[in-house]
């Protein structure tokens, strides 16, 4: 099987589609997390400035959460890619070598 034929396999189309679905959903989540944070800061400073402890404001854990969520989104993608994506890609490559 040559490169062109592989590119036309339904499995290949499916793989590309799945990759981008996962990537775009995760990108959207990153956007919601970060730009959501910025928009709240822009439109309602009082929300972020409210106290959750004696002096600690809600903004402090939220800023830390933006960083931690970003990290877990990358971690999630890598776990998905290492297990699902690489396995599906390897199946197509094996098929290509066999024929």
């Amino acid at each position: 099987m040559n490169m062109k034929e592989v590119g036309q396999l339904p499995e290949f189309h499916d793989l590309v589609k799945r990759r981008w679905t996962v990537a775009l959903v995760l990108t959207a989540l990153t956007f919601i997390t970060y730009y959501g944070f910025i928009l709240v800061l822009g439109y309602s400073k009082a929300t972020v400035a409210q106290k959750i402890g004696e002096v600690t404001t809600l903004g402090i854990p939220v800023a830390i959460a933006v960083i931690i969520i970003s990290f877990f989104l990358t971690l999630f993608y890598v776990i998905w890619a290492n297990n699902t994506y690489d396995r599906l890609a390897a199946e197509i490559v094996n098929k290509m070598k066999k024929d």
């Binding site: 995760l26 990153t30 970060y34 404001t57 989104l73 993608y77």
Partner: peptide, 21 residues
């Protein structure tokens, strides 16, 4: 104060997007 924390988050959020896209 807190403004510095807001600024810091902006420097991190590119990394997940770099990976996904």
């Amino acid at each position: 104060g807190y403004d510095g924390m807001i600024y810091a988050t902006g420097w991190l959020v590119g990394w997940p997007v770099l990976l996904f896209l």
